[in-house]
Design a protein around this nucleic acid. Structure first.
Lengths: 229, 229
DNA sequence: CGACCATTTGATATGGATCAAGCGATGTGG
DNA sequence: CCACATCGCTTGATCCATATCAAATGGTCG
């Protein structure tokens, strides 16, 4: 059976919705043993999942909703490291201390898995071990892509962001943006105004449509790729 | 004894100095089994060690000299991903294809290890496996630091770069820069002129001294940390 | 000594930041 | 159910940091 952890005691989850109702049913989706080892915990919009410098006792997987990981610099600037969408795993750290903070962007459900349980399972199950193995490498690739984004012009960054989001979206031509303009700006190293202006410019040249501010239709992939330099 | 590979046949090493003379003596330094599995190969300044998109058959460790890994964007811009100094391991890839190119910055000696040999050794030696394990995670941390650099002002980037280099240097107050201003600029996402100007400004305010263009003395760590925001 | 290449320095242009105001959707209290 | 406050987003005007263009300097090697 499921080995239930008393995760609500952890300081890492102090902001979880008080009406927390784990949904073990979801634990059997996706066909991996990983889903069976944790509890699904709801977090409400803008609540902290964990903080920078806290010990990294758990691993997290987005079941529904969206999460941002970020750092606050000494002067108050915020850098978003990644957006996590359903299926994404986050919270894995090299040295057992979180190097970023994580917050729920929307109300969401997160599968929370104890690291130690996963490590011991990996010792028994080579498939789990292999999958765990690939996580830092995948993160590294994303970080490297992020670096490449950050040396580009504002327009290229925004276009790159849209392409990245569309690649992660079910419908490749229509992108749902769970995050605010400020979140996008802090991910791309731009200001909210520049992000907004760039999006409207892309709309004006017919590359995209913006039916609502949180929804973008990619109208011309060719134009976008051209603008992506 | 050492199992010598016929590495000079590999396309990855086509630019190695023709007067290649492996130095197996170095193979016994640092007290790790890893040193015993490869051959030390000399590369001359600006020669390619491997190219982007080539299969990643080997792992590399800098014995002496310095290496840059980089990508060329479609419009010709170059982004340097990392500088590798003696002791650094590079060339590890998630999916067995190099995502960056690597070039010798100076004439240098590189220990070249066959991946497959290392993997099989890791299967037998848990210490080697553990060490291999940590590499992607360490790379990830460096990439994340790099991201944080790239969202800062020019002065903060240059200061951050100097602090990073001094942390990797034997003498914490004096930094040898094996790379050109252009290399630094391409690492920091700035132009060569901005890097140069920023360095002279730092010298003018007394934070550093620049006895020669490739040597920087950190005169006031406090001032640098302050400028690092 | 002279050519070459890296670096520095100078003058100007510009992309994105900043400061400021307007707009539209959402929700709340009267 | 509507008036109003709030919040997120967009738009406008101006400023500034860094890029760009250009030239001078300096160090290295033949």
């Amino acid at each position: 059976m499921l080995s239930h952890m008393t995760i609500t005691r952890s300081t890492s989850h102090r902001q979880a919705e008080s009406t927390s109702q784990p949904t073990p049913a979801a634990a059997f989706s996706l066909g991996s043993a990983i889903e069976m080892m944790g509890a699904t915990v709801p977090y409400r919009r803008d609540s902290e999942i964990y903080g920078e410098n806290e010990p990294a006792e758990y691993l997290y997987k987005v079941i529904s909703g969206a999460v941002r990981t970020y750092k606050i610099l000494t002067d108050g600037r915020r850098q978003i490291g990644s957006f996590c969408l359903p299926g994404d795993i986050f919270g894995l750290e090299v040295d057992d201390i979180h190097t970023f903070s994580a917050e729920a962007i929307t109300n969401c459900k997160i599968l929370v898995i104890k690291r130690s349980a996963l490590v011991s399972l990996a010792g028994r199950d080579i498939a789990v071990a292999r999958r765990l193995w690939t996580l830092p490498g995948n993160e590294l690739q994303r970080a490297q892509e992020h670096i490449l984004l950050l040396i580009k012009t504002a327009q290229e960054r925004v276009v790159g962001f849209l392409i990245e989001m569309s690649a992660r979206s079910a419908d490749a031509t229509e992108v749902e943006l769970p995050m605010s303009r400020q979140d996008i700006a802090d991910y791309l190293g731009l200001t909210i105004e520049t992000v907004s202006r760039t999006l409207t410019r892309l709309e004006n040249v017919g590359a995209i449509a913006i039916p609502t501010s949180r929804r973008v239709v990619l109208r011309s992939r060719g134009a976008l790729n051209r603008l992506n330099a």
